[in-house]
Design a protein around this nucleic acid. Sequence first.
RNA 1: GGGAGCAUAGCUCAGCUGGUUCAGAGCAUCUGCCUUACAAGCAGAGGGUCAGGGGUUCGAAUCCCUUUGCUCCCACCA
Length: 916
Amino acid sequence: MQLADKYSPEQIEQKWYDFWIAENLFHSEPDAREPYTIVIPPPNVTGMLHMGHMLNNTLQDVLVRRARMQGKNACWVPGTDHASIATEAKVVKKLAEQGIKKSDLTREEFLKHAWDWTNEHGGIILKQLRKLGASCDWERTAFTMDEIRSKSVIRVFCDLYNKGLIYRGLRMVNWDPKAQTALSNEEVIYREEKSKLYYLKYYVDEAAGSTDGEEEGAVVLNATDAFDPTVKHQILHRDAEGRRYAVVATTRPETIMGDTAMCINPKDPKNTWLKGKSVIVPLVNRVVPIIEDRYVEIEFGTGCLKVTPAHDVNDYMLGKTHNLETIDIFNADATISEAGGMYVGMDRMDVRKQIVKDLAEANLLEKVEDYDNKVGYSERNADTAVEPRLCMQWFLRMQHFADIALPPVMNDEIKFHPAKYKTTYNNWLTNIQDWCISRQLWWGHRIPAYFLPTAEGAEEKFVVAESREEALALAKAIPGYEGITAEELRHDEDALDTWFSSWLWPLSLFNGILDPDNKEINYYYSTDDLVTGPDIIFFWIARMIMAGYEWRGAKPFKNVYFTGIVRDKLGRKMSKQLGNSPDPLDLIAKYGADGMRVAMLMSTSAGNDVMFDEALCEQGRNFGNKIWNAYRLINMWEVDTTLEQPEAAKEAITWFDEVMRERIARINHDMEQYRISEAFTELYRLFWDDFSGWYLEMVKPAYQCPADSKTIERTKHYFDQLLRLLHPFMPFITEEIWQDLKPEEGVKSIVVAQQPQVDREADTTILARFALVEELITAIRNVRKQKNIAQKEALTLNYIADENYPAEFSAVIAKMGNIKAIEAVVEKDATAAAFIVKTTQYFVPMEGKIDKEAELKKLGDDLTYYEGFLASVMKKLSNERFISSAPEKVVANERAKQADAEAKIAAIKAQMEALK
RNA sequence: GGGAGCAUAGCUCAGCUGGUUCAGAGCAUCUGCCUUACAAGCAGAGGGUCAGGGGUUCGAAUCCCUUUGCUCCCACCA
């Protein structure tokens, strides 16, 4: 075949991907082989491929392809996630653009829109993955909201409810007033913000001018006095009429309608006079008690805290401890509710502005300070501040799950790569909180709870069942509800948290929830490797481990490989706003999928971020080109079967056999340790430097000369092996060449070819001897360069024989150095360019081209270095404690270094002698 | 506030159980080559006080302490 001199990925990638699909090479069915399974971290169904996906899926594909080539039954299951909040937000936004409000639609109408959207945009991301070469078993493509996965979720919910692990409770949740949904703590992003701290006056509920509770020496501040919060004695305030008041600092004056107490620290000397009293909430005029709790920071503000149990998480805890009333003053959209009594219907932010004015007017505002505050925002609606809100929610008790999920990670039954994330995992699981699993969304799995009609104000009654029919049966069994009809059951409106389906992924993909003893789950589960980011350890990884043990009694995966975040070369996170995120498909078009994959592989080690630079793609493309051209070279060799195998080729093969043994072992070792980047780098250098740079040059026949069949055969064998090693990393180019090389009858694709095996350990003596050859060749090249001698001008090489002269490679030395004669000599040649490799002295006759002074200087420098080196070795060896405590091997090694250095020094001195 | 991690060449990073000439690789830079596989290439070269300080050890980039700088996670002082 005639090959172009540049490799063009675009022409071949689609062809081979289509071929792999047509030949069904990625499809897996249970059989007698050992399974190797990966489940994909499901991308959002309507998402687009970004650089993070490239990294993550490149790594998974490397693992899967390699396993497949190791004779395992490899199965990589793809799928997508319904991503309830993100997808619903997108649909709401799209509808809004068409002038449709979600609140105007019925649930069914909205879901129709959502499904239309999903069907239209869904799965694009999976198609994009094919461009990368991902060898997923597409026949198994799943969706978290398809039938099996949906039923699994509902079944699991009912199971947990029946086990008593699910409960319903009023909880302070992070409320997104725009999406009108509860968010988990993990979905709230805190941002530093410039805001104000408002100091409000809370008058004491008593007769004017009272001194009740004041100590001797109390500092009385008037409204105009400066206030120092660090004062260690009592402080109280009086207005012009002599009425006493306390000052409360707050960032949220609009919540005072919900105040049901004021709290002080019992140890706060400033505020002891307030103990046991009541105060009047400004403007609202409600009398609330002063409670004492050590939660209050004495140093903050005035040491007085207003307590609003309905609208602050900490206040809620205080309210529970001190049995306070809870007044919820907000509607779901964060406007003031009837219960607020004032500003009803106004938005919280508008109320803040207004109430500050009103407070000032009523002379109830002491002062306003600038304040740096952290405000929680919704991960999905970046401009929407989260409102703490009390809601009836569904919760999953987590202690049980923490107990079953912690040990297997800590004792390495499930291995984390890198292991440092075990600590993170441990921290979370040992301080676990119950999981709020309900979301006020429509797009998702609807909670299978059905409420029974109850009298106004009575406690709610509900049943949990997989279907309305079953729910009805359960309801009828409740005394007083015998005659209930299906229509009277009110299905819970809320959907489940997306992660409540994701945590089942390794189980539900093989239908292990609905049909726990089926052939597939029994075969593929536990899966082998999970590749994902450390940011979802809690959301996903921990919970999959919990689910795996809960429903199957076995780990969901054996290894977790953590990827880092893909950043730009300046170290910034890639984001749409910054516009620093290249489109991966553009990069693939420009550099080829293999080039793209190499870029990802070159720059990542487990758990570390990737500083992405387009130059890496270029490097990847260049490597593809290098492979291509190496193949072009051997492809154009003519065979002459009558030809004897040249000596140089024999020697090269002797050496390269050992190189392959050593490198393959190293690559295998790296891969076993999940050092994927290192394994690839190893391979890169093996191909580029050792194979192309040295081996091919050593066996290459002269221009337009034929080659002998033994050498060609062996070279093609190496090439085949290298392609197999490279295939998991660079699937397309390796297939293209492999198909042309056709090294193995009956194997239709390199995809299913076997990885090379190592028959024995490499002979390190041969490798060490050849290292001397490389050094010698380099030295000869340096002589040429220094003396300006062209490569094609043949030279003579003389040497003084000793045990470090690699005589067994003399043909290679002659060929690589373009040496016409190699001769052992006894006399030094003062007119020759001289150098030393290890201890062997070499001379290249130069006939007067020698600069004696320069040579002497160079030798002198070398002498100084080696004498210093010898001195440091001798220092060690003369240290008795070193001799007695260091292992024998190390001491022996120092002795060897001593001998080498002495020989080297002798050689240098001899050469200097010869020059003079 | 709690926890974890990082700091090695201009850049991105290896350096695994402390010990081989251990101070490395790739990229970038510089020099010389358009040598018939490859200029997307070849042959060479320069470049680091292993963040600072202290300790343990016969021996430290590696282990311990400490200072400095950076990153991430968790918590969320109104």
